[in-house]
């Protein structure tokens, strides 16, 4: 009997894992809770660092998807059971199938910015998130504040919902520093007259060409980087957002207004992933992200034979990291199935 693998989640990780498994002759069912595949990248207008459009990236990933990948969409996986040497996976809608191995590719959820009450998201109209800004870029909406004016100053706040024990997220979301630099540049391209500020705790330009993009942001676009974390925002009579940060390198509190404030929301583990992991008896899910059997040597294995991870469900990743991780997951699964 041909081997059958169920991949949970059809973001970049699930798509890439499935395609590679299928190329190895394995029958794959790719289960996705939404109507269409693509995960979060569907929402990203352009990807850092080279501004590749998100839709183009997804088209490339989906292109040539082998026929032995069957997409089971509009199905949220809610149950998994390990029975002898196979797994039974079931969805919220009654869908159920058996598999010889399963791959978690459930990704992440965006931090709900309203939880940082003091930042005023959902209260002050001109406070938006990085995801909102991507949507504005994608729909071609012009960048105007609630009075219909072009903002003269735009602020980006790093680490919103990341590196913050007050919201129970100790981890760094990894992609938001470079996303802020990318978005700051895009904003500056749209509004060359505007002043753009990034408020950061540390700038983590970990990837290839990220530092270059950061330098370009300074050199070509005069984007200012202020080391200090937003403590609170308020609204003035004109709907501007009044920020309180410390300029930590000067050692002085700073008060500055912005016509538009963008919160760089982080990646959070999905509650659903944790509950599925619990059902299977995975014990290493310290913060809601699934921890691989060994973070250095066995990044796609879990502590349970036949259960694998790919992409951001094991921790924040960029798309390129995710794709590489997904390909390596496919090989790990194939090895397990002794193909």
């Amino acid at each position: 009997m041909p081997k059958h693998v169920i991949v949970i989640g059809a973001g970049p990780a699930g798509l890439e894992t499935s395609a590679n498994l299928a190329k190895l002759g394995i029958a794959v069912t790719l289960v996705e809770k939404e109507e269409s595949t693509g995960g979060h990248v569907k929402q990203w207008h352009a990807l850092f660092p080279a501004l590749l459009p998100g839709t183009e990236a997804l088209d490339a990933i989906r292109k040539g998807m082998p026929e032995n990948v069957r997409v089971q969409n509009k199905t949220t996986v809610t149950g998994i059971e390990a029975v002898n040497n196979y797994f039974t996976v079931s969805g919220h809608n009654g869908w159920q199938e058996k598999a010889d191995a399963i791959v978690f590719a459930t990704g992440f959820q965006l931090f709900d910015a309203r939880r940082k009450e003091e930042y005023g998201y959902g209260i002050y109209e001109n406070v938006i998130t990085s995801a909102d800004l991507e949507e504005m870029f994608a729909t071609g909406k012009s960048l105007v504040n609630r009075h219909g004016n072009k903002p003269e100053r735009i602020g980006f706040v790093h680490c919103v919902g990341s590196r913050d024990e007050k919201v129970n997220n100790l981890h760094c979301s990894k992609v938001c520093c470079i996303t802020a630099v990318k978005q700051a540049i895009e904003v500056k391209q749209m509004l060359p007259e505007a002043e753009v500020f990034c408020f950061y705790m540390d700038l983590r330009m970990f990837g290839r060409h990220y530092e270059e993009l950061y330098k370009e942001a300074q050199e070509k676009y005069n984007i200012q980087f202020i080391r200090g974390r937003l403590s609170e925002s308020a609204e003035d009579q004109d709907g501007n957002i009044v920020l309180k940060v410390e300029d930590t390198l000067l050692g002085k509190p700073l008060r500055i207004k912005a016509g538009l404030l963008v919160l760089m929301v982080g990646m959070e583990p999905l509650a659903g992933t944790k509950s599925l992991a619990d059902k299977l008896g995975l014990t290493k899910v310290p913060d809601g992200f699934i921890q691989p059997a060994d973070e250095v040597l066995q990044s796609n294995f879990t502590e349970l034979p036949g259960v694998f991870v790919a992409g951001a469900c094991s921790g924040p990743k960029s798309v390129s990291d995710t794709l590489a991780d997904a390909r390596s997951a496919a090989l790990a699964v194939a090895g397990f199935l002794k193909l």
Binding site: D247, L250, K252, L254, R255, K257
Partner: peptide, 14 residues
Amino acid sequence: FGYTITRDRQIDYD
């Protein structure tokens, strides 16, 4: 009064 108004240390960027 025996005291005065303290000058604000805050950088007022605007």
